[in-house]
Each structure stands twice: as C-alpha cells, then as structure tokens.
Amino acid sequence: HAAATEVKPEIWKFATIAPKGIGLGNSIRSILIPAIEEGSEHTIQIDVYWGGVMGDEADYQQKMRLGQIQGTGISGMAATIFCPEMSILELPFMFKSWEEVDYIKKVMREDFEKLHEKYGYKLAAWNDQGFDQFYSTKYALDTLEQFGKAKFGSWYGKVEEKFLETLGANPIPVGVAEAVPAMRQGVADSMIGPAFYIVATQMYPEVKYVNPINVRYSPAVILIGLDRWNALDDRYKKRFFEQQADIEAKIAINLRSDNDKCLNAIIKYGAKESHLSPENEKVMKEKAKTTWDYFAGKLYSRELLDKLLGHLDSFRKERDK
C-alpha cells in the first residue's frame, strides 16, 4: 500500500549513443547519475536511453529543445553540434598532454560554461573521450608523402576536412553509419579517431598501422537543459557543485585509462606502431595551425582563440622554467 503522500520523483530523460556498460556510458551510470539522484534527495530520477535508441547527437539536440529529453552525454565532434565553440578544443595539435587539457579546463571552465548557457545547456560535466590518433588499413603514415596518398574516411566536419586538405590527404566523405562499411570495404583506408571507436566498431582487425601521435583532443561532456537546471532547488545545485570536481576526476580516471587500454589492445592485436620523423612532425603541426586561424571568426571568436593560446603559452612557460 503506497502512501498517498509519497512524492513521485521528477524524471529526467538522458539520451546517449554510448552503450550502457562501457566507456562514457559506464561513467554516466555509475558516477554521474547517483550523484544527481542522491544530491537531489531522490526527488529527481534519471532514465537513460542508451546505445543510440533515441537517434544520434543531432537528434538529441532537437529532442532537448522540444523537451522530449532533458540531458545528454556526448563526445568528440558531437560536442561541437551543441556548442560550436567547443571545436576550438578539438583543433588539430592544440593540446600536447593531459596536463595542458587539465589546466585549460581549470582556467577556462567559466568561458565554456557561459558558451553552453548561450545555447541553452548546463555543462554538468566536462570529461574526456581521449586523444585521437591516425589509423590506416594501408599506409604506415610515417611520412608526409604517405598522407598524400591515403584516403581518409571523414565525417568529423569542416575542421577535419580542412586539416586533411592542408596535409594533401584525400578526405572521403562518409555518413557516420557508413564509415565502418567504407573502411571494411576499402573505399577509405585511413581515419582519425579515438582508439575506443576502433575497438567498439570492430575495425581493429582491418587496421594495419597506428600512428599514436595525439592528433586532437576529444572531449566528453554531459549536458542538462538549462531550464531544467535553473528550476532546480538551490540546495541541490549547491550539493552538486560541491561534488562536481570529484565526479569529474573519477570519470576522467576511468575514461582516460579506457582509451589507453584500447590503444594498447589494438597494438597488441597486431597493428604496427608508426611515427613521423621530428622534422615531418614539425611541418605537420605548422600546417595544422593554419586551420586554427582559418576557423577563427567562423566557429569561434578570435578572442577565444587568443585567450586559449595565451593560457597555453603561460602554462608552458611556467612548466619549462
């Protein structure tokens, strides 16, 4: 006999393409959800629609605006769908290490929270999918000439297309769902992506070479509709903020180690590790920088780019002292 006074919790629906048990999905389930549910004294219950049953990230954006779902967990390119300025973080060779990422997260957190708010989202957690690497079924990708020959399957959008162009590589435009068939079939022979993706899509038996250079940083964020967040009791918000750093640290440990595990597993499975010569690497990084300028004023403001580069510069100077 349920008591008549028992209050039904408010249900927040979350959608993610991450499957339930692994990677980002696991972190959402075991760390984020309990934090919000307990933090709200169970007045909020989170129902997650895992594994893309609600469609892809572009659909989540529309569904959030229509109010069908209240939150989402997304990574990589999808983060730029919700907040185009996030592409500044995903520029090729912007970050060299996790220390740099962590520093920017600390000093520019507020900037990115404000940007998300501009589009109607609360940046509930800012985590990492990892760093993306070069993978190929055909070319070692250890010289710049090899990049000229490779056919890169690409669905990552304008920045990646531009970057590949500057390398002289041929981007093969593929739909997200068709990327894997295209690689298996051989229409495309190379790609930039996280190790996690190569494992999850079973591309690793096909992959012959890995160039494990950190091509680009790939964030994983959890967003809540701003209206829902604002309507939340201040007590619950405060409690959530108190835990936030802890939650993110826990998720970060999980996700970063997951990605490293995947990369090691791919190499152990038989993919050959390849490296550019230091001169070639320098040339490539210089070329990549032209994309940073190219998209300033298009995807993000010039000021944001200057601010980010300024922070990175001072961090590097401080560290090298």
Binding site: D59, K63, L66, G67, Q68, A177
Partner: peptide, 19 residues
C-alpha cells in the same frame, strides 16, 4: 504530453539512415 514536433524529428531522421 510532448510536442507534436517530436515525430517530425524522427521522420527527418530518415536522411541519416544508412544507405
């Protein structure tokens, strides 16, 4: 009790269907 636009989002998802 949701928007009538919700099924329209789904209809337009056709464009992303594989093949």
């Amino acid at each position: 009790h949701q928007s009538m636009a919700t099924p329209i989002v789904e209809m337009c998802r056709l464009a992303n269907a594989p093949g």
